[in-house]
Nucleic acid binder design. Structure first.
Length: 92
DNA sequence: GTTGAGCGC
């Protein structure tokens, strides 16, 4: 079965790569709707991970299977479907 | 170098 969300979590990311770079990479798998690299809200520095949203679910699955383990800037990225945005207490 | 975003007490 394949019932993942359109949101993709990218871990083990190189600090040298940018959202624009990620989008080009993920467009190989399908339609990229959005790319985001969250920064540390305390320091404003990169944490080494990113989020990518695909226009369709099949594209997201293709991204996981094709781009997971892809070497970017000398570092292999980990692509997985993202979990719900675990807010400590703001879900309701 | 791994789950964002408001978040501290």
């Amino acid at each position: 079965m394949s019932n993942d969300k359109l949101k993709l979590f990218v871990g083990n990311l190189s600090f040298n790569v940018s959202e624009q770079r990620l989008q080009e990479i993920f467009e190989q798998a399908g339609e990229v709707t959005s790319v985001a690299i969250p920064l540390d809200r305390s320091t404003g520095r990169k944490r080494g991970f990113a989020f990518v949203e695909m226009g369709t679910q099949v594209a997201a699955e293709e991204a996981v299977k094709i781009l997971n383990g892809t070497e970017v800037d000398g570092r292999q990225i980990a692509v997985n479907p993202s979990q719900p945005q675990t807010r400590s207490r703001g879900s309701w």
